[in-house]
Design a protein around this nucleic acid. Structure first.
Lengths: 363, 363
DNA sequence: CTGAAAGCGCTTACAG
DNA sequence: CTGAAAGCGCTTACAG
């Protein structure tokens, strides 16, 4: 016994690595202590049924007692799976401070946690793309797959994933030019809900603040806006549509232009909440009232929409759910799911205080 | 020649792993092609000066031509560095959709990119802490170190990093109970700037919406608020201080209580922008005007502060810079920096339209 | 200046 | 049911 302990302590010297980093108990330590091979311990940990119940239990207890934790670098190097996915955000200054992306990421992270995955954050800056980092993080085994947020048609790099065999999921958008897996909100139906509502309130001259014609989802909204107007017998006037650049400032400027070109506008539909809030700000600045003079509707239902004054009527986008679904489908793809992913989640209208009957009707 | 090629193609069979994943060119492939050992290629790639300039150049070209990319799992397993850090966010529902955290994360990610680091996102949910995941991600070699955001005194787990030797940095807070590396904004000075300004405007009865007495940084603000009042010969009235829970709703309720208990209040200082915005909302709801009746000041200078109506006077917190500095110091610590990190970054007052001379003075 | 070899800590056929 | 061995793709002393 003495001898054995002596040997053990010689064989298990403190090998903390530089700066005492990392865990110290390895598979081999457990195997030695249990007097079995490392293969056996490994199989126990991986629940391989070939190991007898007796030894399995014995080793599980030992693992527990010794506080063994697998080194996941070694695991991944052997198994070829990292159990990490990357979230690629667009190269916007405030991408991380953005409520829209925040909701999606929240869904992604929650689902990832439940599935035993880790989430790495990347931003698609010009250098990042030029160096093909979006592909390399996969090829170099940082991640098993990628979730792309805030994409638009100019992001040709999205097509690279297909050819390099990197599992990738476009979140809340899709592409006409090529085929990619995606999970998104139902933009068409969302826009229909807005237009039905405004038309019901008697609005006929409805301004639309749009943004980024190079985003398929955004185009869908404008197209639907036009077709719903025509359906109601109204020919959409080109001056009713302005670009608001997805920002409050842009929304404010767009609202200004629209009201200048057609002062008879009674409602403004913002392509997202931010632009709608900017529009409200501008409407008030012009001495008009929301909703008495101008109804304003948003699109997103970000947390803040309920806290502006007046509170914003808007379309609720299931962004959290889109994040969860995207994560879930991506993992399926990583593990060999053959069918492509084309998922669309439903939206609904949230009526608050920024909308009212059209003034032309009420007078 | 023929023979050699035959051998090569035999030795370099397509070994794409499951589902054709991962890059295919390994160090060994390059070494074979260059007719040197893998050690030599490895050293060339790591800029080891022991390799002759001639072979170094020759191999660099070959690496380029073959499109070799190191497998970072293997690299990390050998080198013991992952070049990944974790950002641990608090378990709040909207932690990712939060402008405050967003700014910090933005700084962290930008700096990380420049330093060749990747950023992993974690949320400190109860399960995460109970399973000691905050330590395990380090011990299991997911990350080299950890950045903790949104901490408070109840987060005892922050102390675990010290004992486990995991490099960790507390961002924008500090602890009295134990010593941790941290980088934070200068809360004392920020509060002084607010109070000096309000006192200059003639305000004497100043309400304060605070939050979370278990956050050191927040306590500092309240303490400074009190001492600045006393300095000005004003005894702080306990009814002037209310908790606003860091939210708009909370801020609104707190403002309501304060104004109920002392209708003579002329200014309200919100411990963060959200609560200040909630307070403005409430003040208006009570039929009062901002800033004519009540001046409101925030604390954070989040993007949105410039877009409420009226625009919010607030303290600008260098959150992006705090993120960058935290990341930079953490990497220093990972690589053996011996001195603890105690860094404080300066704030400044941003005057907008939510503040005016006190009405008691102007009448 | 370069190579052969051990090692990082796992997993996975392959034997027995 | 279990073990010995090869392998994942690197880095790093140690020789020469």
């Amino acid at each position: 016994m003495r001898t054995e302990q002596a040997i053990q302590s010689k064989l298990k010297p403190e090998k903390p690595g530089p700066f005492g980093r990392g865990s110290t108990v390895s598979l081999r330590d457990v195997a030695r202590e249990a007097k079995v091979s490392v293969a056996t311990v490994s199989m126990v940990l991986n629940g391989n049924p070939r190991i007898s119940r007796a030894t399995s239990l014995r080793i599980q207890r030992l693992v527990e007692r010794m506080g063994y934790q697998p080194n996941r670098l070694a695991q991944s190097l052997s198994s070829r799976y990292t159990n990490v996915v990357a979230v690629i955000l667009p190269a916007l200054r405030h991408a991380f401070a953005d409520a829209y992306f925040g909701e999606v990421i929240s869904g992604i992270c929650d689902k990832a946690g439940k599935m035993g995955y880790k989430v790495m954050l990347e931003q698609a800056k010009p250098d990042f793309i030029r160096e093909k980092q979006h592909i390399r993080i996969f090829e170099r085994r940082y991640v098993d797959g990628v979730l792309c947020l805030g994409t638009n048609d100019r992001h040709k790099w999205v097509e690279d994933f297909g050819v390099s065999g990197c599992p990738a999921m476009v979140i809340d958008n899709s592409f006409d030019a090529f085929s990619v897996d995606h999970v998104m909100c139902d933009y068409r139906s969302g826009c229909e809900q807005v237009m039905n509502y405004l038309l019901q309130l008697g609005h006929r001259r409805i301004g639309m603040i749009t943004a980024a014609p190079d985003i398929k989802a955004a185009r869908t909204v404008v197209d639907t806006y036009r077709s719903k107007l025509r359906e109601a017998g109204i020919e959409p006037n080109p001056v009713w549509i302005e670009d608001g650049k997805f920002t409050e400032e842009g929304g404010a400027q767009a609202a200004h232009k629209i009201l200048e070109k057609d002062p008879q506008i009674t409602a403004i539909f913002g392509g997202n909440d931010k632009m709608a809030i900017g529009a409200m700000y501008q409407v008030v600045n012009l001495g008009l009232k929301v909703p008495e003079d101008i109804s304003v509707v948003g699109f997103d239902d970000l947390r803040h929409a309920a806290f502006v004054n007046p509170t914003l009527t808007t379309i609720h986008l299931p962004l959290y759910e889109v994040g969860m679904a995207g994560m879930e489908r991506l993992v399926e793809r990583i593990h060999g799911r053959p069918e492509p992913v084309r998922e669309v989640l439903p939206t609904h209208l949230v009526v608050r205080n920024s909308t009212a009957l059209a003034r032309t009707v009420s007078t």
